[in-house]
Design a protein around this nucleic acid. Structure first.
Lengths: 141, 141
DNA sequence: GACATATAGTCTGCGCACAGATAGTCTCTG
DNA sequence: CAGAGACTATCTGTGCGCAGACTATATGTC
């Protein structure tokens, strides 16, 4: 490591994400939501708009969240009254996740808050470039 | 959120970093190091090569790590015998962090492992483009 | 129908990220 | 020099990220 270590793209990626996470957390705190709670709530809300009722696993995959985290975070969202979970009658292992009226009311405001943070955060760069580069890095393989 | 939520650059940034963190963690696990342990060890090693002996706060700032994390992680590195901490005689609040012989021996291998992960991870994109874009996003303000 | 295997979800445990509080030390100012 | 305020490091607590173990249910095979 002769060059200054901060020159590594990996470190830059890491720090950029930590900064983004802090911004997102700050924007969601007044709504009493964490980032992962938001991602799962927004995903449930979006799927609901598509007429779909996922179970926890398919929702976790859709949201790109670990299934074990999803189990725990969805329990929290249920405690807050934003989603409901009920066993799938056709597969008793699975739990359907449905958005509640309160969740449907809370989601748009949270989405707007996150989109505002995203817009400000990525303002210094071209969104097209950012999406192209990050898509190539985010995909598995 | 009429468009598919995965189109957000923020989510892509988040997922890319999680994937990168998993790759880094897998590469460092055989060396019995976590990512943050590596960052602080490598930073101490690099500063040592520059003839500098930081305290915990300046090391944490250099490495871009939270000071409270640094305190805890450096205690772990000291437990592993990779660094030593001693009170600064000229400022008894501060602790000098010095790399040990074992740390000096372990650092190059860990750096090589991380650089290999970085090279593979960023292969799909131009490193120049990645650094330019991520630098703009990582900097505060 | 009985068994092996796969799947959905939960629980425990470790480490990071960060907020808030605290102890001990230093520095500045009157 | 005495007190106020700043600074270094630590501790506690919450939540994420993930690995591993476990329960309960479903499915395929004989």
């Amino acid at each position: 490591m002769s060059r200054h270590p901060a020159a590594s793209p990996g470190l830059l990626l890491w720090r950029a994400t930590l900064r983004w996470q802090r911004d997102i957390a700050a924007a969601l705190a007044p709504l009493d939501l964490t980032h992962v709670q938001f991602v799962l709530l927004a995903s449930t809300w979006w799927l609901d708009g598509q007429g779909e009722v996922p179970n926890q696993l398919s929702l976790a995959r859709f949201a790109g969240v670990d299934i074990k985290m999803a189990s725990q975070v969805l329990a929290g969202l249920e405690r807050k009254g934003l989603v409901e979970r009920a066993p799938d009658p056709s597969d008793l292992r699975a739990k359907h996740v449905r958005i509640t009226a309160a969740g449907r009311a809370a989601a748009p405001e949270a989405v707007a808050a996150v989109e505002a943070v995203d817009a400000a955060f990525f303002r210094p760069v071209s969104e097209r470039d950012a999406i192209a580069l990050l898509s190539a890095l985010a995909d598995e393989g």
